[in-house]
Design a protein around this nucleic acid. Sequence first.
DNA 1: CGGCTACTTGACCAGATTCAACTCTTGTGG
DNA 2: CCACAAGAGTTGAATCTGGTCAAGTAGCCG
Lengths: 234, 234
Amino acid sequence: MWHGAASDCGLLEKAELFRGVPSGALAEIQASSFRRHLCADEALVRQGDPAETLHIVLSGRLRVTQTTPEGHQIIIRYLGPEETVGCTTLSGGAYYPGTVTAVDDGKLLGWNATAIRQVMVTYPQVAMNAVAILGTRYVEMQTRLRERATQNVERRIAHTVLRLTRQAGRRTTRGIEIAFPLSRQDLAEMAGTTLHTVSRTLSGWESRGIVDSGRRLVVVCKPDILSSIANTPS
Amino acid sequence: MWHGAASDCGLLEKAELFRGVPSGALAEIQASSFRRHLCADEALVRQGDPAETLHIVLSGRLRVTQTTPEGHQIIIRYLGPEETVGCTTLSGGAYYPGTVTAVDDGKLLGWNATAIRQVMVTYPQVAMNAVAILGTRYVEMQTRLRERATQNVERRIAHTVLRLTRQAGRRTTRGIEIAFPLSRQDLAEMAGTTLHTVSRTLSGWESRGIVDSGRRLVVVCKPDILSSIANTPS
DNA sequence: CGGCTACTTGACCAGATTCAACTCTTGTGG
DNA sequence: CCACAAGAGTTGAATCTGGTCAAGTAGCCG
């Protein structure tokens, strides 16, 4: 669907950062960009490095993580095609707050900090889009923080899985499948729990026929029941 | 210090949203604004209402909260002078994700959605500032989420208190005092715990001479020891 | 003084983490 | 092609942090 669909012109027009920008401008913007290929498990930016580039995803999927000094890791989010990587560069932060790693092989388009900031000043629509992107992510984080503070593990895992189906769900005969490799550990780092608890919870759901999961795979068979779990007060 | 210092001209020049904007532009921007007074405990915007206005704080302090359908509340942040209220309006969200209430009496300047979006398009610096503000808050939320996921209660409370001293700390003879009324419940809603646990924790610190707290009051006597608590792996 | 709100503290309990042992997949190299 | 190592997942048992319940004290305002 996404893969290979991007011809050489029109790479930018669908990107969330460049929506609504006139195509003449897009050509000029693209002229200042560079291409980047990324293999699975390769890091694009590292936590703590100076924030010097911004990328948009053309194909593939990336994972954004943060690691504490003690070595605990959490997953901030996954990014797919059309999305923006390295927002810190947009907002003028000095260092990347997290690490971005490829989950699949993928292609990206990149700009350095000064180039993209110049683009924002020249084309206000890009700046407006940037505001919208960051605003959305900010609210998303608020929601997750609230979930973490007020819900028990099962509900949080349910929410996490549902969010992922919305973001990267693929219809199959068995149900909605999360379209990239996702381990118990990954889910745990998103929901703020341990892989053991995730495993137990998925096992429970599996015995009730709500999900069908395997090695690095989750398929939601009964999304409605999962939503009701996600929304039932503990 | 802040109170009353703002004369009629130059209200905007210090606001985080309008930094670096030429003063001619500021006058024009201010012309499209309206004033608003707010009494303690009065709500400025309500969670779920259409996002129609943006404000900046001239004086006083505000609290941003989110409430779940079940009635659990969390505190997203406190806002003081120069800060921006209702960022959702900037980023084009349809509804306010949280409720903003006055902690003290205060004065604000407001714009409606179309006016402020027009300002951003006309003066790219404002849009750039908006990107910076949202970027900072986004990273802040990431940090809190990570804390919530990886640290025990005591560390989280310590971090919360330290953040508040940085944001609204006032030097006194006893130590650094948080300069607005702050109950155990408030701290609990920020650190993601219960007022009981906050109370117990503060009692413990008090007996060690680290803090000195009373009814809706927290004074940090030994900030260095508190930092070490905040940064010691559990 | 009485009523209200904020705060404190003890006892108990439970959800979730930790520890530990084991199984199932998958991929690799002899 | 099979063996085996490494990675991923499962599950039971013990433990414990922090929440819940309950009862009481202290400060504030009309």
